[in-house]
Amino acid sequence: MKPAPFTYCRPDNVEQVLDLLRQHGGDSRILAGGQTLMAMLNMRLVEPKILVDISMMEALRFIRVADNYLEIGAAVIQADLLAWTDLEQYAPLMAKALPWVGHAQTRNKGTVCGSIAHSDPSSEMPLCLALLGGEIVLRSKTNRRMVKAADFQIGTLTTARQEDELIEAIRIPVPADVSKFAFQEVAIRHGDFALVAVAASHSPDGIRLGVGGVADRPEVRHWEHLPEDEIDTALNDLAHELGGYDDIHASAGYRRELVRTIGKRVILEVMA
C-alpha cells in the first residue's frame, strides 16, 4: 500500500499552481490536506504524475468576510475553521456539521475545500455548501469563475472543475440574523461516512432541506412555505425522487426512510 511514483511540487504562489495545472491538467492532483487523497494514493486508486502541494501556502489560508460572504481559502484546515471564534456567527451550520467530518486527527490536516473538491456523495461539507447556496471559486491561468454549489457537484466524485482549475476558495452567503439551522447525521460508528446526512435552514425566504448520502450528490430542496402537516408528504416525495442506493452498510429503502425520519427532525428543529 504505497503510492505510485510522482513528481512532488510545492509552488511558492498561486500563479505557479495555475501554471502547473495548465501544463499538466488531468495528470496532476492538488494536495491540500490529503486526508482522502493520500489514502487513495496509498491504495493506488489515484496515480497522478504531478502532485501539487498547496497545504503550506499562506496565500490560500484565509477565512474572511467580505460583501456579505464568508470566504474560506483552499488551504484552510477543518480544525482551524472549527476553532475560528466567529464561525457560529457567520456560518452556524458549518459549526454544527464540522464535528461530524472524520475525526479530530483528520480534521487537523484535512481542508474544507478538499472535502468540496473530493465531492463524496455523503460528505458533510458539500452538503452544507449546497444548502447554504454557496459558491466555489475556480481559478485557472486564464479565468476566474464562480460556480454555485448546486452546479458544482455533478455526480460521485465528479465536479464541474476543469482540469486546469484550482479551487481557490469557497464562498458562503452570511445568513440573515433570524435564520435557523440544524444538522443531523446517521452513521454506523462515530466518525464514519454518513449513511444519510441532513441539514435544514429556516430563513425569511422559507425552509431548505439538504440531503447527503442518498443520491449521487447532495440534493437541496426549498419550500417557501411548508405547513407542518405537509412535511411527511414532501419528504416522502423527496425520498422517492432521490431513490437511494444499496451498499453493504445500508439499503436504499433504509436511506429513503431516513430522509423521511431525520429529515423531519431537522425541519421541525428549524421551524421550532
Binding site: L45, S122, G155, T156, L157, D216, Y245, D247, I248
Partner: peptide, 20 residues
C-alpha cells in the same frame, strides 16, 4: 478486485458518471 473491496459505497455513482 480492489475497487470493489474498498470503494463499494461509491461504485453505483461512479458507473453512472461513466455511462453519462
Amino acid at each position: 478486485g480492489k475497487i470493489a473491496a474498498v470503494g463499494g459505497r461509491l461504485l453505483g455513482g461512479a458507473m453512472k458518471v461513466l455511462i453519462k
